[in-house]
Nucleic acid binder design. Sequence first.
DNA 1: GTCCTGTCTGCAACCGGTTGCAAAGGAGGT
DNA 2: ACCTCCTTTGCAACCGGTTGCAGACAGGAC
Lengths: 337, 337
Amino acid sequence: MTVPRAKTLADIARLAGVSKSTASRALNDSPLIGVDTKDRIRAIAAEHGFAVNEPARRLTTRRSNVVGLVMFDWGIAKRQDIFMLEVMGGVSAGLHEEGYELLILQPRFDDRDWARRYLETGQADGFVFHLAQCSPEQLDRLEQEGVPFAVWGPASPRNAYSSVSGDSVNGGRIATEHLLERGCRRIAMIGGPARAHEVLERSGGYEAALAAVGLAADPQLVEHLPWSAGDSDAGEAVGRLLERAPDLDAIFAHSDRWALGALAELRERGIRVPDDVAVVGYDDIVTAAYAYPPLTTVRQDGDLVGRLLARTLAQQLQTGVVSAVTIPAELVVRESA
Amino acid sequence: MTVPRAKTLADIARLAGVSKSTASRALNDSPLIGVDTKDRIRAIAAEHGFAVNEPARRLTTRRSNVVGLVMFDWGIAKRQDIFMLEVMGGVSAGLHEEGYELLILQPRFDDRDWARRYLETGQADGFVFHLAQCSPEQLDRLEQEGVPFAVWGPASPRNAYSSVSGDSVNGGRIATEHLLERGCRRIAMIGGPARAHEVLERSGGYEAALAAVGLAADPQLVEHLPWSAGDSDAGEAVGRLLERAPDLDAIFAHSDRWALGALAELRERGIRVPDDVAVVGYDDIVTAAYAYPPLTTVRQDGDLVGRLLARTLAQQLQTGVVSAVTIPAELVVRESA
DNA sequence: GTCCTGTCTGCAACCGGTTGCAAAGGAGGT
DNA sequence: ACCTCCTTTGCAACCGGTTGCAGACAGGAC
């Protein structure tokens, strides 16, 4: 025969012969309750498999303990972005550790009010997303409304949100150093938008590595693309680079997709990789390992990113402290360079 | 000057000069309220940007309008399962259309009680997950407790849950037919666990296609692996097949990972694909398109799967009707076959 | 014995909605 | 004019927790 299940706090209180308030305080570990009473009540609650009713708790405390992971136009699935998937796993694990639940949001692109709505309706306390997926207007609005959130991407200049970012300076540096070590000397770069924060950093690392061996960066060897550019755009960029600098012997692409596009373009032109031109990508998306030849790339630990996002956001929600942390970049050497 | 924001239903009621109950009914489109009053109240609510407090609503209605997507040991991220990612996007979109929110759950592997807890604490009304990721014991328990859920996978024999499954018979058939059309006659199969439902269906399609051209299935040409097997296990399976049937001219693998493993093994043995041996996979994971050579495979529409899961679960929650639907399989021809 | 103090517990209000039931108001029938 | 009936509205209870405040009780100091 199984123990009858107590559904409400009142049931527990009755069983323990105390009042609702005492029961509530005992379960919430309030210092107002004596240890013995506390233990007794808890034992009873455990025995009867009691679990608090979340809506009721949320109604009174005015906190939901839920964080929304924002998918602007479900970019992660459309772009089949394995890295963000990994991040998501980390966010989920990290949030559960911190005692939060994870809600998936897909605001319609014309919805300017989603954050306020989720906050005011008590469905979420804060948000996490990929900064690159968020439009500048949206970002401004979130900052102005004082919405609490944490992003994967460059830190907030106004300190308005928490952030976890990759060490792009170092990422650019190690990619370039590796190519230099292979003996490459005319290293081209297919970079993201010239003024983007990460791009500046990666370029900085690239130039620093070149300078360290006495080489100057040659503007002829650099192409910039918008993040939205695809493989074929990268292929065209390779064409332009080869035209300007037929002697290039390596390409450092700021994204694996572009690196894959470059690989295809080079293959088409009969240029051997890595013998004639070595290629390094960035991100280590799954496809990288299965490319032909398998892609050497700069990898960041997505799971770690997610956990850090969870932790910093939890901290921000509880203490109001926003933080910016940076995670290391690591070179994964395969066969393309 | 901006309109002051009305936070609670009582505010709206006061502004409209009616009672809370009338306001509530108007916003919920109750037939008890006259159209004119209804319109007036709604206009006021819209003007003041009113949104109901979800915890309060959930507390009284005892429904959360939240569905939990269950990630057993976060399989999707670990296995970098792009297909499930796509499904997830579809689930999210579909649920939002149906008026539900999506919560991500990661029950600890030793947690036998997660479903009851989420239901009883009013955090979710039902669940969605990948059947293959769920242990048989867990499944039994869920069925017995009468938990409402929908899965991607074979239908419930006891009709205890809703399901969306792929048309595996047809999938097996079209893969085999394609190989036959290419002229292959000794078609090997690397299948999933011999007694799994989908595996039986795919094998059925495979045999039917062979029979249609007057060929009998040769047991020597068949290997079975557990779903947990990886690329290298598939490579070994290829070895065994080649030993038993050196004349095989095609391989139909029940998963793209295995097909990729086969590709690697064949390359290593100096066997050309598709000239010597053609290879067809199953699932069309992203990596398939980037493999060398790009993999011909059987694809299912993950987004559609997700939307159907959302729809059937919503229906089940609202009407109690469980349904089983099947989606078509489609051959994606690339270069490996 | 009285008073004070500090520890523990209970009362009751409140969070913001929903809903059963009673009643108000107007239309129509006789 | 009166009664009935139907449509529309309001009252008040309830959902299941949390928390400010008052009070009970025990122990120690005088």
